[in-house]
Simulated scan of single mutants.
Amino acid sequence: MRVYPDQLSRQLKPLQQCYLVFGDDPWLCETSRELIFAQAKREGFEEKIQLTQEAGFSWNDLVDQWQAMSLFASRRIIELILPQAKPGSEGGAIFQSLMQMPNPDVLLIISGPKLAAEQTKSKWFKTLDAQGVYVPCATPEGNQFQRWLDERINHFKLTLTRDAKEMLFGLYEGNLLAADQSLQLLQLLSPNERVDSNQLSAYFEDQSRFSVFQLTDAMLNNQQDKALHILSQLKAEGVAMPIILWGVFKELATLLQLRTALDNNESLQSLWGKLRIWDKRKSLYQAALNRLSLTHIETLLAGASAIELKLKQQGIEDWTGMSHLSLLFDPKAHAQLAHIQLNEER
Score class of each variant (00 low, 15 high):
66 W>Y: 09
66 W>L: 13
66 W>Q: 07
68 A>F: 03
68 A>P: 07
68 A>N: 11
70 S>E: 06
70 S>G: 15
70 S>W: 08
71 L>Y: 03
71 L>G: 03
72 F>T: 11
73 A>Y: 09
73 A>C: 06
73 A>D: 02
74 S>Y: 02
75 R>D: 00
75 R>P: 01
76 R>N: 02
77 I>Y: 10
77 I>N: 10
77 I>P: 14
77 I>L: 15
78 I>H: 04
78 I>T: 04
78 I>P: 03
79 E>V: 10
80 L>G: 09
80 L>T: 13
81 I>S: 14
81 I>F: 07
83 P>V: 13
83 P>N: 14
85 A>S: 15
85 A>I: 06
85 A>W: 13
87 P>I: 00
87 P>M: 00
88 G>V: 06
88 G>S: 11
89 S>C: 05
89 S>V: 04
89 S>P: 03
89 S>A: 07
90 E>C: 03
92 G>Q: 08
94 I>L: 06
94 I>T: 15
94 I>N: 03
95 F>W: 15
95 F>H: 13
95 F>T: 12
98 L>K: 08
98 L>F: 04
98 L>I: 10
99 M>P: 10
99 M>S: 04
101 M>W: 05
102 P>Y: 09
102 P>R: 11
102 P>V: 10
103 N>V: 08
103 N>K: 03
103 N>S: 13
103 N>T: 09
103 N>D: 12
103 N>G: 09
104 P>C: 02
105 D>R: 04
105 D>S: 10
106 V>I: 05
107 L>C: 01
107 L>K: 04
108 L>T: 06
108 L>H: 00
109 I>A: 01
110 I>K: 10
110 I>W: 01
110 I>A: 04
110 I>V: 08
111 S>H: 13
111 S>I: 14
112 G>T: 05
112 G>P: 06
113 P>N: 10
113 P>T: 00
115 L>G: 00
115 L>C: 02
115 L>D: 00
116 A>N: 09
117 A>P: 05
118 E>G: 03
118 E>T: 12
118 E>N: 12
119 Q>M: 08
119 Q>C: 10
